[in-house]
Every structure is written in structure tokens, then in C-alpha cells.
Computed example of a mutant assay.
Amino acid sequence: MERLPSWIRQHLAALRALLVLTLVTGAIYPLLVTGIAQAVMNGNANGSRLQEGGKDVGSALIGQSFTDGDGHPLTKYFQSRPSAGGYDPLASGASNLGPQDVLDTLPVPGAKDDEGNPDTGRQSLLTQVCARSKEVGALEGVSGARPYCTGDGVGAVLKVFPAVGTPTRVVSVNQACPATPFLPAYQGVKVECGKPGEDYAAGRTVPVRGDARAVVPPDAVTASGSGLDPHISVAYAELQAPRVARERGLGLDTVRALIGRHTTGRALGFMGEPGVNVLELNLNLDRLKG
């Protein structure tokens, strides 16, 4: 029999290698790994799903909100930390705003965006933190004040003119007129409220720390990097415990015991901080009351 040309033999060898590797890496290996995962860690392999009444209610690995149709917190439930992606696994991500993001863009009354929607402006990361802290404080019956925040829940930031030299004009840029500025005067100059649409870029930015002491924990006012964090800190859970106990008619010690039961330790015993799984805790509370 006449031998095949070398180029044909090379192509046939490549084809055989392709078929063998496709079978091994595309079928045998995935089936083997899937089988081992199902046998050894069935729950984790299937997404750590949590069920109630035979129905999936969520995952132990993905946070979710506990609010009503208008977005208001359901007071008998522990609340999760904020999420930049709305707890949507398909929109996982952070706000990508950093600590230098302290200046709001005030909405201009009557103005509309390119799609015809009312102008809503843009909140800086600082103002988002301040607003969340104020809301959490009101919900839990504690002070929502924190450094660099005004009493009305926006970033305490001044624009000073000129940028260099003796101030002649000072504006509380995140407090839209006719709001009363959080400081009456700065270096002897009366502080003005911010006017929507006015350009303050030429001024020197001066965040004002104030003397407030934060009671609301950091994870209550900042979103996680993924936007899907299912845990809150023990401190945030303890802050919410009196409200949940009161709304459910339970003893505070009972609620705190449940917090301890759903608290996970540090990874490998030394990395990170202990956390409380919010969904598991709320499901346990519902079972406790039937």
C-alpha cells in the first residue's frame, strides 16, 4: 500500500490528538470533578441553596435585601449591608468610588437628563455613607452622626475661595440652598449654602471632620466589593438585635444567642473578621415564631 503524504499524516495525527484531548478535558474530567463534588460537598456544589417549605429562598453565599415594595426596611428582620449592585448576581460589583470622592453634584430643579428624566444629581461616596448612617441611626434608635458628615446626612465639605491665600468666600457645596450650612463661618468668613448648577471647581476642597463619634458600624454604611456579601459584622448584628427582639416579641438574650449560632469565625482561624449570615439568621427567626 502506498504511504500517505506526510502532510496528510500530520493532519490526521493532529485530529486524533484533538479528539482525545476533547474527550479527556471536555467530558471525562468535568464529569469526574462534578461527580466528586456532588458526592463530597453536594450543598456547596449546588450553590449553597437555602430552602424553606421545600422552596429555594436564597443562597448562603449571596446577600439579599429585606425591604418592602417601597424599599423600606422590614423592621422584624436583620438588615444586610448595602449593595452597589442591588444584590443581583448578574450585576456584581462595587461602586468604584474612592475616599477622595467627597463632592456631590446637586440636582438642578426643573432640569432633565438626555432621556427626559428629572435631574437627580450625583451623590459622592461620602454623602452616601452619611445618608446611610443617618437612616440606620433612625431605624435603630441611636445616633447616626459620624465624622465628616453634616446633621442632615451629607458630606461636610467646604469650597474655599480663593484656593490659595486668605479666604473671601466659603460654600458648603453638598448642602443645597436654602439649607442652613453646618458651619456658620470658616476663618471669619460666613459660609454659604450650595447653589445647584454653579461651578465651584476653582475653590479649595476642605472636608471638615467635626467632633462626632460614629456609633453605626462601617459595614452598615459601605457596600462590599462584590455587592453580594451575605454577612454583616457582629457589631452591626448586635446593633440591630434590640429592634428585632422588640418587633418579634422575643427576649434580647434569645436573639443574641441566635446571632452567636450564625456567626462564622475568621478564615483559617486568623484571616478577616467574624461575620453573621443574615439570611440564615432571619430564616431561623421565622422558624422560631412558627
Score class of each variant (00 low, 15 high):
Ser83His: 07
Ser83Ile: 08
Ala84Glu: 04
Ala84His: 05
Gly85Thr: 01
Gly85Phe: 02
Tyr87Val: 10
Tyr87Ser: 05
Asp88Pro: 03
Asp88Leu: 03
Asp88Arg: 06
Asp88Cys: 03
Ser92Gly: 14
Gly93Glu: 15
Ala94Asn: 14
Ser95His: 04
Ser95Ile: 13
Leu97Thr: 12
Gly98Arg: 15
Gly98Gln: 14
Pro99Met: 15
Gln100Met: 14
Asp101Val: 15
Val102Phe: 07
Val102Thr: 13
Val102Ile: 15
Asp104Pro: 02
Asp104Cys: 12
Val108Tyr: 01
Pro109Met: 14
Pro109Asp: 14
Pro109Gly: 11
Pro109Phe: 13
Pro109Leu: 11
Gly110Ser: 10
Ala111Met: 06
Ala111Gly: 10
Lys112Phe: 10
Lys112Asp: 00
Asp113Leu: 13
Asp113Pro: 03
Glu115Ser: 14
Asn117Glu: 11
Asn117Tyr: 09
Asn117Met: 11
Asn117Pro: 00
Pro118Tyr: 09
Asp119Ile: 12
Asp119Tyr: 07
Thr120Ile: 13
Gly121Asp: 10
Gly121Glu: 12
Arg122Trp: 08
Gln123Ala: 11
Gln123Ile: 06
Gln128Glu: 12
Val129Glu: 07
Cys130Pro: 02
Cys130Met: 07
Ala131Tyr: 03
Arg132Val: 05
Arg132Asp: 04
Glu135Gln: 13
Val136Gln: 05
Ala138Phe: 07
Ala138Trp: 08
Ala138Gln: 14
Ala138Gly: 08
Glu140Phe: 02
Val142Asn: 01
Val142Phe: 06
Ser143Cys: 08
Gly144Cys: 13
Ala145Val: 05
Arg146Gly: 10
Arg146Cys: 12
Pro147Glu: 05
Tyr148Arg: 12
Gly151Met: 04
Gly153His: 09
Ala156Leu: 07
Val157Ser: 01
Val157Lys: 05
Val157Cys: 05
Val157Phe: 08
Lys159Ile: 01
Lys159Pro: 00
Lys159Leu: 11
Lys159Gln: 02
Lys159Asp: 05
Phe161Ala: 02
Pro162Gly: 04
Ala163Asp: 02
Val164His: 00
Thr166Cys: 01
Thr168Gln: 00
Arg169His: 04
Arg169Ile: 08
Arg169Leu: 04
Val170Pro: 05
Val171His: 06
Ser172Phe: 09
Ser172Gln: 12
Asn174Gln: 03
Gln175Ala: 09
Gln175Glu: 14
Ala176Pro: 03
Ala176Trp: 05
Pro178His: 08
Thr180Met: 11
